[in-house]
């Protein structure tokens, strides 16, 4: 089945023939093959796609990366250099630029059929959450969302109940569709070996989407991306209003080189944009340092940050639940402690 995808070019055909024997051999003992569905924007691979490749390699079979959209071919070169990627498939069709599930899912279905893939993996991002369940229904399989551990090719671990329980599940479906939690797998790094072969896929059903993309409004930020930042400072209701949030949080974040997050209370009260929300219904982060400022620590919030390496908290309520998970707690009025901390960090730089 792999051979049906080999490119028409003579050079590529020769290269494919050279590896085909090795692949067929590998397949006999290890019939697994994984399709890693990757995200890109403005000609660059998005950081949430790097752990997807790592998770794909843990499944044990060959890993084929798929990129779709106008820029697919140019991003493919970056992906081909990554460790663990055996092949890159591109679907260079502008119809996929906005990642609409209505045409993206059938396109994936066609590629899975053509490539005979046993596993399909994508990030548990807005993209993966939107498209993968639709694909799963088309394939008639029960998807496994937000996977944090891969035991073997059919056994996976995922958090349920806002991370208050960890379930191990075994899938009996022929094709396993997974979305993975990016913070649970390391990012794939660029390898030293030769780059994987890049091929344009011939599987593009060109399904019409009944949905049209109108516009987008993305928050512009010079700071690290919240989902992948190594340090996060997060503000809650204790900041009292948006002015305080805007006055205290950005200088602290800059002094630490951190991304800014917020609790749901802060978002609901209009202190911060919804895209900054950390928690069960917002982003899940696991940075080296998570500093919670004026956040009490409701279970929905903890669900989004309790896998952080070090948690620090500043809160004036000594009984706030956040102190039960914080490695370092400071009981203090944040309006004096935060500026002092910011100054101290700056002076030590």
């Amino acid at each position: 089945m792999l051979l049906t995808r080999t490119a028409p070019s003579v050079l590529r055909a020769a290269a494919a023939a050279a590896t085909a024997g090795a692949r067929a051999h590998a397949r006999r003992f290890c019939p697994l093959s994984t399709l890693a569905v990757l995200e890109h924007k403005e000609g660059n691979l998005l950081p949430q796609s790097l752990p997807v490749i790592t998770a794909a390699t843990k499944l044990g079979g060959t890993v084929t990366a798929l990129l779709a959209g106008t820029d697919a071919a140019s991003v493919a070169a970056q992906v081909a250099k990554l460790n663990g990627v055996s092949e890159v498939l591109t679907v260079s069709n502008g119809a996929y630029d906005k990642s609409l599930a209505e045409n993206f899912a059938p396109m994936l279905q066609e590629n899975i059929k053509a490539g005979g893939f046993t596993h399909v993996v994508a990030a548990h991002s807005a993209f993966g959450k939107n498209i993968m369940p639709r694909l799963s229904a088309l394939l008639d399989v029960q998807q496994i969302s937000d996977v944090i551990e891969i035991h073997d090719d059919s056994t996976f671990v995922r958090p349920i109940y806002a991370g208050n329980a960890i379930a191990t599940v075994k899938s009996s479906d022929d094709i396993k569709v997974l979305t993975i939690r990016g913070t649970a797998f390391p990012a794939a790094a660029e390898g030293s070996g030769s780059a994987a072969a890049v091929q344009e896929s011939s599987a593009d059903p060109k399904v019409e989407s009944s949905t049209t993309w109108v516009s987008e409004n993305l928050a512009k930020s010079e700071r690290p991306d919240l989902g992948t930042a190594t340090r996060v400072v997060s503000g809650g209701r204790g900041l009292k209003d948006k002015d305080n949030f805007d006055k205290l949080m950005p200088p602290l974040a800059d002094a630490l080189g951190a991304a800014i997050g917020a609790s749901r209370a802060a978002v609901d009260s209009g202190f911060a944009d919804n895209s900054l929300q950390v928690g069960q219904t917002g982003k899940v982060v696991a940075p080296q340092l998570y500093l919670a400022v004026g956040i009490s620590g409701a279970i929905q919030h903890l669900a989004g940050m309790k896998d952080s390496k070090v948690i620090a908290a500043i809160n004036k309520d000594a009984d706030a639940p956040i102190f039960q998970v914080a490695d370092v707690g400071l009981v203090a009025d944040l309006f004096t402690a935060v500026p002092e901390l910011t100054e101290k960090l700056k002076s030590e730089k």
């Binding site: 949430q48 906005k98 609409l100 991002s125 807005a126 993209f127 009944s210 949905t211 049209t212 993309w213 109108v214 516009s215 987008e216 409004n217 993305l218 928050a219 991306d225 989902g227 944009d273 919804n274 895209s275 982003k283």
Partner: peptide, 13 residues
Amino acid sequence: REVDGGEEVLELG
């Protein structure tokens, strides 16, 4: 709709 980093607008039939 809420997406990573902001929002987008879609029109559905």
